[in-house]
Simulated scan of single mutants.
Amino acid sequence: MSRPPTFTPPPCARARVLHTERGDFAVLDAAPPAGAHSTALLLPGYTGSKEDFIAMLGPLAAAGYRVVSVDGRGQYETEGTGRQESYAQGELARDVLAQAAALDGAGGPGGIHLLGHSLGGQIARAAMLTDAGPFRSLTLMSSGPAEITTDQQKKVQLLGDALSRWTMAEVWEAMRALDPPEDADTGGEELRRRWMLHDPAQLIATGAQLSAEPDRVAELAALPLPFHVMSGERDDVWPVPLLDDMARRLGARRTVIGGAEHSPNTARPLETAAALVAFWDSL
């Protein structure tokens, strides 16, 4: 589970609702005071939320970008449906396209820079393969070419089984009992509140997707867009050599954030933001 350093937005950002043709989405919307030259849309990972990018919003806005991080359908402060079929990957991809349409023209010409972390990367990929027109670039952060590792599949299956039988509160207490000692006091009530507001149907459906995702790198590579593959120097969800190979197959810019693992956005936000600015500015 990602652990944002805070749930309080920086002064440049405001929490608001993004209205789209597919419903309302809770977002953090950050912009430079002098106006943005481009817009970036950031999608969080499995069990995550828009707050996973909170420490990056200030640096990205300072570089001239309007940055919108979003809670996907059924994540944290965006309302869910309680129905697993609502979270089919194609449905979530169409949500992203609706979000992009709602932001179109608000942050400068040239399309939206799309970034997805972990599960968010696979949803972002599906959105691009549905319609790449709204986008200027795609960054896949700690998000691999196909299914997650066997060990992670077992964990996701255990979580899905628990969510099918227990309440969200009961699952939370069970997960916290398994936390390593160094994480025992991290996040506290804000993390619990985020967990309790997730739709369990979303977690079950997207967990199954992570365990069965096909390799669609060749389809993505056929799109005439610039790609960026980012990760920490270690990753137990998709091994780093697998991400290296995916970057090669995409002809993508490759960034490895030292001192980070699966969530460089929370572990090393300043370095991660600087790498994103370097990529986006190069375009």
Score class of each variant (00 low, 15 high):
S2C: 14
P5E: 11
P5V: 13
F7D: 06
A13K: 02
R16K: 13
V17T: 11
E21H: 12
R22Y: 01
D24K: 03
D24M: 01
A26F: 03
P33S: 00
A34M: 05
G45W: 14
Y46P: 10
Y46D: 07
L60R: 02
A63Q: 14
Y65E: 00
R66F: 07
R66H: 04
D71F: 09
G74H: 02
R83M: 04
S86T: 09
E91I: 09
R94A: 05
L97T: 08
L97S: 02
G105S: 12
A106M: 15
P109A: 15
G110D: 05
H113S: 08
L114W: 06
H117L: 06
A124T: 07
P134V: 04
L138G: 01
T139S: 06
L140H: 02
E147M: 13
T149C: 06
V156G: 01
D161H: 13
S164R: 05
R165W: 11
A177K: 10
L178H: 13
P180M: 07
P180D: 10
G188W: 12
G188Y: 12
E189A: 09
E189Y: 03
L191D: 14
R194W: 03
P200W: 08
G207M: 09
S211C: 14
A212I: 02
D215K: 08
E219Y: 00
A222M: 05
A222V: 03
L225G: 01
V229P: 07
V229I: 05
G232L: 06
D236R: 14
W238P: 07
P241T: 00
L243H: 06
M246I: 00
R248H: 12
G251R: 00
G251N: 11
V256H: 05
G258K: 14
G258H: 11
A274D: 13
L283Y: 12
L283M: 04
